Computed example of a mutant assay.
Amino acid sequence: MVPAAFVVLERLPLTVNGKVDRGFCRRLEFVSGVGRVPGSGVEEVLCSLFAEVLGLERVGVGDSFFDCGGDSIMAIQLVSRARRAGWVLSARDVFQHPSVEGLARVAVPMGAGGGWWSR
């Protein structure tokens, strides 16, 4: 596993009780959205869903889901939200094609035949 980000700190963040604040890293803001803008409808939907699931303002087409802070549970949430938006993906797809661009190539519109069970 590779960390999503490296942060240099002058000192460890502490809670009000003086203990190390272990939740500090989860509250860091990941900066993303640099790069190519969506070029198709599915890319636009997936960029929006990536940002929603990851809690980011925006995500670029080439950004990796996991490099932006995603994990396996969030990948399942992404798959579920994509399905609600009319696109069939599997969690395996997210791991094999972690960028918006990669997922857009394997996403199947609902009702178009195929889907996660045929891969």
Rank of each mutant, 00 (worst) to 15 (best):
V2L: 15
A5L: 10
F6Q: 15
F6N: 14
V8P: 11
L9H: 10
R11I: 15
R11S: 15
L12W: 11
P13G: 06
L14R: 10
T15K: 00
K19S: 01
K19Q: 11
V20Y: 09
D21F: 12
D21G: 13
D21H: 08
R22N: 15
G23L: 12
G23Y: 09
F24K: 10
C25D: 15
R27D: 12
R27S: 14
R27W: 13
F30P: 11
S32H: 12
S32D: 09
G33F: 05
V34H: 12
G35T: 01
G35H: 05
R36K: 06
V37G: 05
P38Q: 12
S40A: 07
G41F: 10
V42I: 08
L46G: 00
L46N: 04
L49F: 01
L49H: 03
F50G: 02
E52T: 02
L54P: 01
L56K: 02
L56A: 06
L56C: 00
V59C: 05
G60E: 00
G60T: 00
V61E: 01
V61W: 03
S64E: 01
S64N: 01
F66S: 03
G70C: 09
I73R: 03
A75T: 06
Q77I: 00
Q77C: 05
L78A: 02
S80R: 05
A82G: 01
R84C: 13
R84E: 12
A85H: 05
G86L: 02
V88N: 14
L89S: 12
A91C: 11
A91V: 10
D93H: 07
V94G: 02
Q96H: 14
Q96T: 12
H97S: 13
P98S: 07
S99M: 11
S99E: 04
G102N: 03
A104F: 12
A107L: 06
P109S: 07
G113C: 11
G114A: 14
G114Y: 13
R119A: 14
